[in-house]
Simulated assay, not measured.
Amino acid sequence: MSEGADLGIHPRVALVTGATSGIGKAAALALAGEGFLVLVHGRDATRGAATVREIEAAGGRARFLGADVSDPEDVARLASAAGEVDVLVNNAGFSWFGPSAELDTATFDALFASNVRAAYQLVAALAPGMVKRGRGSIISLDSMAGRVGLAGGAAYGATKAALTAMSRAWAAEYSPAGVLVNTVAPGPVYTGADPELIKQLGDTTLLGRAARAEEIGEVIAFLASPKASYITGAVIPVDGGRTAI
């Protein structure tokens, strides 16, 4: 286990939203490997149980918390069920790409409810406890789509850019009390989405490939570790150099 991992009666706790697949699952596994008790959030209890079993099989500890992040009452229940957490990873949400004229209002609102409002609610509910304890880490998932203009990605990119804007404000609000707030901005990642599209996007990066979810999860775990104790208010691009050009 890494430096700072606490395997005693009161382990450090990490809540990872959208942790039953993709980047969220990779982050949950990486954080469990660092000694955190991981609260695995998702909507599907079967997939949640599978993630918990995978963490436990590797020697870690986890439990599943179900909630629909598009429902503000469900998000409030999630925050209450999580209790005191040391690390919050705002990863849950969904993407939509296509011509702007084809995006209906209901889907637009659902994007912002799941990708933005849920994160805001969780931070509002859980950050005051971190402030009271004088420590904590909040890590939100931006995206390459929030950093560069992508045709068909106006609404989704706006939700991701909003997470970074909120994170900068949260850093100003909470970091003086010892709470670190950062965003991670992945590029194309193989997470079960259209693999051919991900490959095409990966070809546009300086490294000429898309990332594995584990490569993003490790960066999230680093930001949650004592090794990142002087990083706050930052956006960490993990995009193979795509936003550098």
Rank of each mutant, 00 (worst) to 15 (best):
P188T: 10
V13K: 10
T46P: 00
A76W: 00
A62E: 01
G4D: 11
L88C: 03
S175I: 12
R53F: 05
R135G: 07
I216A: 00
L7F: 15
S2H: 15
A45H: 12
H41K: 05
A30T: 06
G66V: 03
T164N: 11
E173G: 03
G178K: 08
L126G: 04
T159Q: 08
R43H: 09
V38F: 09
A45Y: 05
D239Q: 13
T46Y: 03
L37W: 08
R242I: 13
G240N: 13
F112A: 02
P99E: 12
G35R: 00
I139W: 00
D86E: 12
G208S: 11
P237S: 14
R135S: 11
S140D: 05
M166E: 05
A14N: 01
I55T: 01
V189T: 14
G48K: 02
F36I: 02
Y120F: 15
L206C: 12
E73N: 07
E102C: 14
G152V: 09
P188V: 11
M144D: 04
R117I: 02
P226R: 08
A234E: 10
K25L: 15
P11F: 12
M166I: 14
N91T: 08
Y156W: 10
F36T: 03
S80N: 14
E3P: 00
T51K: 01
G60P: 05
L201C: 08
V148H: 10
A106R: 14
G233P: 11
A151V: 14
L206W: 08
A161L: 10
V40G: 01
G93D: 08
P176T: 11
A57N: 11
D203R: 05
A32K: 03
S229M: 05
L197H: 12
F94E: 04
V131K: 09
H10Q: 12
V69T: 06
G22T: 13
L39C: 07
S21D: 14
L15C: 09
R212H: 15
A118D: 04
D44Y: 13
V189E: 03
V184P: 01
A57K: 07
N115P: 06
R242P: 00
I138F: 07
G157K: 02
V238F: 10
A62I: 02
V16D: 01
G217C: 11
S21C: 12
V87P: 01
A26Q: 04
R12H: 15
A30N: 06
S2D: 09
A28V: 00
F94C: 02
D203N: 12
L39K: 00
